[in-house]
């Protein structure tokens, strides 16, 4: 997965996975909101990147050239992000001809206890 400049600004790295990559975001000043906590915007950016990663991996598996455009995103913030590494993974709920519905969750210690989740809709230009 090739990361855009914004992902580098967040300090992201990629752990490949069978269905979707896991994006890893270290804690640091670049992603700090109020003292000691992750910024909601950085967390939202991470979730969007994880969703796109999952979608791209599925589209590459299908072969064929296409571009994706984000239509919208809804982010739910569940727990404050603390001073530790955050991971996020997307999963494609449905891939159609024109629209993909994708979800992503972000967690710190335990994947079963997400700190934030996002739902995104993408337009697919084949």
């Amino acid at each position: 997965m090739k990361l855009p400049p914004y992902a580098e600004a967040l300090g992201l790295s990629v752990e490949p996975g069978p269905e979707a990559p896991v994006l890893v975001m270290p804690f640091g000043n670049e992603v700090l909101g109020r003292p000691g906590f992750l910024h909601g915007g950085a967390l939202g950016g991470l979730l969007e990147m994880a969703a796109i990663g999952a979608l791209n991996q599925m589209l590459e598996g299908e072969g064929g050239e296409c571009r994706v455009k984000p239509v919208n995103v809804t982010v739910d913030y569940m727990r404050g992000g603390r001073d530790k590494t955050t991971r996020a993974r997307g999963s494609v709920t449905r891939l159609g001809n024109r629209i993909a519905n994708v979800e992503a969750i972000a967690w710190q210690d335990d994947e079963a206890r997400p700190i934030a989740a996002a739902r995104m809709n993408y337009l697919i230009l084949r």
């Binding site: 855009p4 400049p5 914004y6 992902a7 909601g40 950085a42 939202g44 950016g45 969007e48 990147m49």
Partner: peptide
């Protein structure tokens, strides 16, 4: 930037 080809800002900063 989130879209290198077109030089478009990523959506994360707009969310922030």
């Amino acid at each position: 930037i989130g879209d290198v080809e077109r030089g478009v800002l990523a959506s994360g900063p707009i969310l922030a």
